[in-house]
Design a protein around this nucleic acid. Structure first.
Lengths: 335, 335
DNA sequence: CAGTTTCATCGAACCGGTTCGATTTAATCA
DNA sequence: TGATTAAATCGAACCGGTTCGATGAAACTG
């Protein structure tokens, strides 16, 4: 590996001049610049990113921290961020916390140790400890997906209240009254907002929500499955089930299939968030999806803005909330 | 951030002694060690990984390079590797090349620049240029998924010939003779092996393969969809379709649904590799799946072995080929 | 007890860049 | 043309660790 000193020797200039020429060519005379360029090419010099980061106290890497990279929602966002970052000469490191706050902390700390230029973070925690932790991080951070009260950072996400409301409204329009809702964890903003969207819309329509029709699916497969089972074994069953996310909704579909209920003939189903291969799942589920590409684009732009602009770091945090989109399927029937 | 010099000052010893104490406590006298430990705790010292890597010429990071982190196949492997690495005090950096060889190269080069201790690589290329590139990388590497002729590295994967053969045999047993096969890219070892498994089994059974029944799906959604369409519009249609991977098979299912063919009543379908939520896809597809957890475990162990063992680096490359598993669904009917 | 080992510790060089004040060179002005 | 200013280049310190030969003290040998 050729070092900057090899280049300096060959070009017959000082090391500092080479460094200057590489980072700010305009401040070097044309003929020295030429010499240096030749030398760089001759020895095949490539700057060592580690040494650079150590000296600068900052690297060209961006940390992407989510709970599940396998989720297509995060996948789309990651791709957008990656493309944008690459165009701006930055490099994305992906980490997966498996939704565990402890692991997320460790990973973030490691990324900080690597002197990452910035972080795109889907927060997994919510308690005071976590808030302090995030507040103490001294790098540009754009949070997304989960709006956490108390985190003073840029946030990019969707209008989850609206998402819940849209599907509820749709089911009401189709004549459903006995609508069940499978919720997510109560400490998650997306979960509570979606649920509020449901209850508010029901209240507006003057339809009472049967407390037995609200079950907790934790946004996980196992809890979602059990929650759905609890719904389905009731003597008075709901005519429609609304899943607060893709996982619990599909778990419910599985439960329905196993118990022999047909969808939508026996029970209608709707969900928030898309899933891979939704087009070959029978029935095609009616859903509200987030504009992942737009979200990813905003996250990328906002983060790079903060990173590259000297004054970007001190701009007050800002929220970007996008409107989700209704995608009609054939999992909801008129009653 | 406290540095090692702060610790040295407080403990009233030299910097080199602190460094020694931290990396090899046994070589330091008990009482100095105690002093140093106190000082470390007092100033809250944590070694800067960047500085460490620079000085050592090697980091504690492992690069994980695949074409699509969202693919559950890679996801499972990543998780296994991550768990194992974490237990051994290493950290996994995940990168996604989107299947583009150029991007993969850039990412690998970046990881090498970061002085990663090792690489788990799902190769995306196959030409001489690529072979030279991989051969030139001077770090422990374990390749997986795609066996590339000419890469002299450890390889971990499944018996793809067998995978193709198992499903073909299954369809033959059910009485199918007009079996179609949707292939993957001809330069991919997995694709050709699976196809060979198909043709060999057909030949053994004395059943001729209709050339019109072999179409190229490129392992992608669009090509897979088109390929399936080509199969389905033929006057003499196949009675069963075998998809060389999950993507082309599900694309075929979609095509069938759109053209009004029922599966398995009209056409049977089988595929290689699992997909998320396969249990709620109707019909449940009969498939052959790879043991991703085992694959991940082997990759992790092999890589860490090469990394941590001084002589591990020179051990000759080895192939680990696992037997895939048959998972029965209800997408294949007897004819 | 002198002579040789062993052990603990230290100092300095090093990894490969960046940065900034100082110095030399070139350009501008009176 | 000499004085002033701007531009180009350089040297040395620095980022925060590691490594290795040198040094001095303690332990062992005969």
């Amino acid at each position: 590996m050729a070092t900057i000193r090899d280049v300096a020797k060959l070009a017959d200039v000082s090391v500092s001049t080479v460094s200057l020429a590489l980072s700010n060519p305009a401040r070097v005379s044309p003929k020295t610049l030429e010499k240096i360029r030749h030398a760089v090419a001759a020895v095949g010099f490539v700057a060592d990113p580690l040494a650079q980061s150590l000296a600068r106290g900052r690297s060209r890497m961006i940390g992407f921290v989510v709970g599940n990279v396998g989720n297509p929602f995060f996948g789309d966002i990651r791709r957008e961020l990656e493309n944008y970052a690459l165009d701006h000469n930055h490099f994305v490191l992906v980490t997966d916390s498996s939704g565990k706050t402890g692991r997320e902390k460790a990973m973030v700390e490691h990324l900080i140790g690597l002197k990452t230029a910035g972080l795109a973070l889907a927060p997994s925690g919510h308690d005071q400890d976590y808030l302090d932790f995030v507040a103490g991080l001294n790098v540009p951070i754009v949070c997304f997906d989960q709006k956490v009260a108390g985190i003073e950072r840029d946030f990019v996400g969707s209008d989850n209240h609206l998402a819940g409301a849209m599907l509820t409204e749709h089911l009401l329009q189709l004549g459903h009254r006995r609508i069940a809702f499978i919720t997510g964890p109560s400490h998650m903003h997306t979960a509570t907002e979606r649920y509020r969207g449901f209850t508010d819309t029901m209240a507006n329509a003057g339809v009472e929500v049967n407390p037995n029709f609200v079950v907790d699916g934790q946004f996980t497969r196992t809890a979602g499955y059990e929650a759905a089972m609890r719904l389905l074994i009731q003597p008075e069953r709901p005519t429609a089930i609304l899943g607060a996310n893709n996982t619990v909704a599909l778990s419910a579909l599985q439960a329905m299939q196993e118990l022999g209920f047909r969808c939508p003939e026996d029970i209608s189903l709707a969900m928030i968030d898309n899933v891979q291969w939704s087009s070959v799942i029978t029935p095609r589920i009616t859903m509200v999806v987030q504009d992942t590409l737009a979200l990813g684009g905003i996250i990328a732009r906002r983060l790079m803005h903060r990173i590259t602009n000297p004054q970007g770091a001190v701009e007050p945090p800002q929220d970007f909330v996008l409107t989700p989109k209704f995608v009609s399927g054939n999992s909801c029937r008129r009653v």
